[in-house]
Design a protein around this nucleic acid. Structure first.
Lengths: 107, 107
DNA sequence: GCGTAGTACTGCGCTATGCGTAGTACTATC
DNA sequence: GATAGTACTACGCATAGCGCAGTACTACGC
């Protein structure tokens, strides 16, 4: 089973969760996710997801110049984003419960 | 969040699990999955997954004529399939654990 | 001063896979 | 003979994660 396929649809949720308590820029979100255990997630996937979520109107964005490298594009959850996060968490939990039922008794 | 995206990669696992205890044909597997709670899964997705798993060599297949409709193509887990099922279950559990960590404290 | 490494982001094209739809074919029922 | 349910196949689409190349800036070592 390929982990990259499992991420489909879930990366949105993971990124939203990573921004829940604190704003963050792409590279940092990537580090947060990898540290949380999603060590195989690609950088382009995270940047892409951030852009997609931004276009979808659930994130706001602001650029901060950095003194130790290139500028950083910070992202922040807005109200729509927080609502979407809650909804997505529920959908995810329902889904994993269903799968748990199906796998009951398996290995 | 879209349920159909969540299924990516997981449908393999669901189908293998549905065939764990008993052989089954496509239409029946579809019913088992829907009954288990995956009520939005499309029929073409299940047939496609069965064909893919068959090509991958984890399922064997035999055709049984039916007296109450068209013929039925039964699928059966072979040893490779059972191994893959166990592996996939582990991958899935690890993945959901990781996500659980990430979502800890969320809604 | 130049190459390498780390940071930070963008854009392009590929691929896997679930889904919608149409089509085939058989049985049963009205 | 038309419709509905069963059972499967085939075609093409859309989504989204990923690999890779490219840009740009800082810092360190030679």
């Amino acid at each position: 089973m390929d982990t990259s396929q499992l991420l489909k649809g879930v990366l949105d949720l993971a990124v939203l969760a990573a921004l829940r308590d604190e704003d963050g820029y792409g590279y940092e979100v990537l580090r947060r996710l990898r540290q949380a255990g999603l060590d195989e997630v690609g950088d382009a996937s995270v940047y892409g997801t951030l852009r997609r979520l931004f276009r979808a109107g659930v994130l706001t964005s602001y650029v901060v110049p950095s003194e130790e490298g290139p500028h950083r594009k910070y992202y922040s959850l807005n109200d729509t984003g927080r609502t979407k996060l809650e909804e997505s968490v529920r959908t995810w939990k329902d889904f994993t419960d269903t799968m748990g039922q199906l796998l009951k008794g398996a290995a």
